Amino acid sequence: MNTPRMGNNVVIGENVTFGENVSIGHNVIIYDGAKIGDNVLIQDNVVIGKQPSRAKNSILPDVKQLPPTVIGSGCTIGTSSIIYANAELADDVFVADLATIRERVTIGEKTIVGRGVAVENDCKVGVKCKLETNCYITAYSELGDYVFVAPGVITTNDNYMARSAERYDKFKGITIKNGGRIGANTTTLPGITIEEDGAVGAGSIVTKDVKQEELVVGTPAKVIRKVPENQLLRNQ
């Protein structure tokens, strides 16, 4: 096994594997079985492979032990970030300080997860996405490739607002297809889909699906126009 460069007070569990040229900061915890690729930078106070704690009244499945975390080559994990068990980061993912990536989440190559971002359980994020500072990606969401989510965006997944057992099989997060974009401080209602190259203006509340290449703005968000040709994903 390759031996990483390590700071002080590092705790490494059993059967953790490291690629070449891994650097680990101070006060890092890496739980059993985690797989760390080549050229990975893990900064101070990071936790990798944390098993989730389940509240007594949680609707999440009671899983005793989730599979280990997988961190691809070339990743950076910022200070005080937490990457849960059964999360998988592809190569060259950048996770900024204070971010949280929950269990059963996959993050595609070269995606940026910004400072303070929370990606909740059972989400899929594509390649070369940008999730900006303090945005919240609710559980059961799926983001395609080249998706942009601006700072302070809030997504939701529970139309019943925790008031009925009927909601248990109806949770649905946001779906953002390739090239979709959401402006700062936007809120989306549960189950919203933003089609390819759809865009949402800053400060909007999205109550209906956004069609391909539409720009919507306002409270509630309404269609303003088609996204300009020079801003479409196919021209990037």
Rank of each mutant, 00 (worst) to 15 (best):
residue 120 E to A: 11
residue 65 Q to W: 11
residue 109 E to A: 07
residue 114 G to M: 03
residue 99 A to P: 13
residue 117 V to W: 06
residue 87 A to H: 05
residue 122 D to A: 02
residue 83 I to N: 03
residue 101 I to R: 04
residue 105 V to A: 02
residue 119 V to L: 01
residue 111 T to W: 00
residue 100 T to K: 10
residue 120 E to S: 12
residue 93 V to H: 02
residue 116 G to D: 02
residue 101 I to M: 03
residue 98 L to P: 04
residue 94 F to Y: 15
residue 103 E to L: 07
residue 108 G to P: 03
residue 65 Q to Y: 05
residue 94 F to M: 15
residue 86 N to G: 10
residue 105 V to Y: 03
residue 105 V to T: 11
residue 77 I to W: 08
residue 71 I to G: 02
residue 94 F to P: 00
residue 83 I to E: 03
residue 96 A to N: 01
residue 106 T to A: 06
residue 88 E to M: 12
residue 81 S to H: 11
residue 87 A to W: 03
residue 120 E to F: 08
residue 117 V to H: 12
residue 88 E to W: 07
residue 81 S to E: 09
residue 82 I to R: 05
residue 113 V to T: 04
residue 117 V to R: 08
residue 67 P to T: 10
residue 90 A to N: 13
residue 104 R to L: 09
residue 112 I to C: 09
residue 91 D to R: 06
residue 101 I to C: 01
residue 88 E to I: 04
residue 102 R to D: 02
residue 122 D to C: 08
residue 94 F to Q: 15
residue 78 G to I: 06
residue 124 K to M: 14
residue 69 T to I: 11
residue 105 V to F: 04
residue 103 E to A: 12
residue 123 C to I: 01
residue 83 I to V: 15
residue 66 L to M: 07
residue 86 N to V: 05
residue 103 E to G: 09
residue 78 G to C: 08
residue 80 S to R: 15
residue 74 G to F: 13
residue 118 A to M: 14
residue 102 R to C: 06
residue 101 I to D: 00
residue 125 V to A: 02
